[in-house]
Design a protein around this nucleic acid. Structure first.
Lengths: 177, 177
DNA sequence: GTCTATACCACGATAGAC
DNA sequence: GTCTATCGTGGTATAGAC
C-alpha cells in the first residue's frame, strides 16, 4: 500500500514489494494470485472499511443539517487516518480490470448515496437548501476529500481546527439554516 | 496526451505513442529528448495556458464577490475544455523528476494565489466571509476541479446549468452577501 | 513456506542504413 | 526524417530444490 501510494501501481514492481516485506519475489505468489489482485484487495478493503465505519457510526436524529455536519466530520476523520488507501482508491481506478473497477465503483456509489439522501431530506424538511442534490453531493465530497491533498500533521492548523473550518464551509455551501 | 490521460504515464510505452501518431518508436526521439520531457512539456504547456488565459480575462472591478464568481466561471470553463490535460496535471505529478515537479508546483501555486487574493480582499471589504482564506482556497479549487471527474456532455444538465449551480455553491460557501 | 533460477516478454533509448 | 535492428535492463510469473 505504501509503495503503490508513493510511486503508483504501474511503477511498482513485484520485486520491490517483495524487498519491502523481506522476501524474494517468488514468495509473494503464495499470498496473491497476481499483482492486479493485490491492488483490488487493497481498494476493496478500503471501501468495505469505509462503509462499515459509516454504518456503525450513530447519526443524529434531529434534522438533516445535523446529519450533514456529522457526515462531514466522519468523512474528514476517516479519510485523514488513511491517506495512502484514499490516494490509491482515487488514483489507481484506471489500473483495475473492468470487472474489478465495476465492483469498486458500486461501493463508491453506495457511499455517495448516503450523502445524497441527507441532502434530499434536508431540502424537503427545509433545513438545507441545495440547488441540485446530485451535484451538491459530488461537490461536497470533492471538497472534503481534497483535505488529504494538502493537510500535513504539524502544520499551521490542528486536525480539529481544519475539521471545524471545513464543516463551516460545507454547511454554508449546502444552505444550512 | 490522450494516451497518458487514459492509461497513465507509467503504463504507456513509447512504442504505443509512436503507433498513435503513425511512426516507429525511434522517430519520436527526433522530437523529444526522452519520455519524461514529453510529460513535462504537456504539463508545462497546460499550466502556462491556464495562467495566460486567466491573466487575459478582464475581471470585474466592483467587489471581490463579483470577482469570485468570475473566477469560478473561468475555472470551470477552462478546465472543462481540457479534461485530458487537467487529469494529467493532477495525476502524474509524482512521475515528474524533482526539478520538473518543482517547476509545475510553482505555477500551480501562482494560480491558487489568484483565488486567495480574491478571498482575502473580500474578507477585508466585507463582501465575503471565509473562516480561513488558505483553506477556503484549497476547498473551493477542489470543489470546482471536481466537476471534471463526473461531468459528461449530453447528460442530465447542460454545461451552463452546471456552471450556475457550482457558482451558487461557491458563493454560499465563501459567505458572499 | 521460501529460496534460486529462469522463461518469456516489453521497456526506453540508440546506431546506422537509406 | 524515418526506418529496421538491437543493446541492456527490468518486468510478471512460474518451476523445482530444499
Amino acid at each position: 500500500m505504501r509503495l503503490f501510494a508513493r510511486d503508483g501501481y504501474a511503477a511498482v514492481s513485484m520485486r520491490q514489494i517483495a524487498a519491502e516485506v523481506g522476501v524474494q519475489a517468488g514468495a509473494l505468489y503464495l499470498y496473491t494470485a497476481d499483482k492486479q489482485s493485490l491492488l483490488f484487495d487493497l481498494m476493496k478493503g478500503h471501501m468495505d472499511a469505509l462503509l462499515d465505519a459509516w454504518t456503525q457510526t450513530p447519526a443524529p436524529t434531529e434534522n438533516a443539517s445535523a446529519r450533514l455536519e456529522h457526515f462531514a466530520r466522519f468523512h474528514i476523520r476517516f479519510h485523514a487516518a488513511r491517506a495512502d488507501a484514499v490516494f490509491i482508491s482515487y488514483m489507481e481506478l484506471r489500473n483495475l480490470t473492468p470487472d474489478n473497477f465495476a465492483a469498486i465503483e458500486a461501493l463508491r456509489k453506495r457511499y455517495e448515496s448516503e450523502l445524497e439522501t441527507i441532502l434530499r431530506t434536508g431540502q424537503q424538511e427545509g433545513t438545507l437548501n441545495v440547488p441540485d442534490t446530485k451535484l451538491a453531493t459530488m461537490a461536497l465530497i470533492a471538497m472534503l476529500t481534497g483535505v488529504n491533498t494538502w493537510f500535513r500533521e504539524g502544520g499551521r492548523l490542528s486536525r480539529d481546527r481544519v475539521e471545524d473550518i471545513y464543516v463551516d464551509m460545507v454547511l454554508k455551501a449546502a444552505g444550512a439554516r
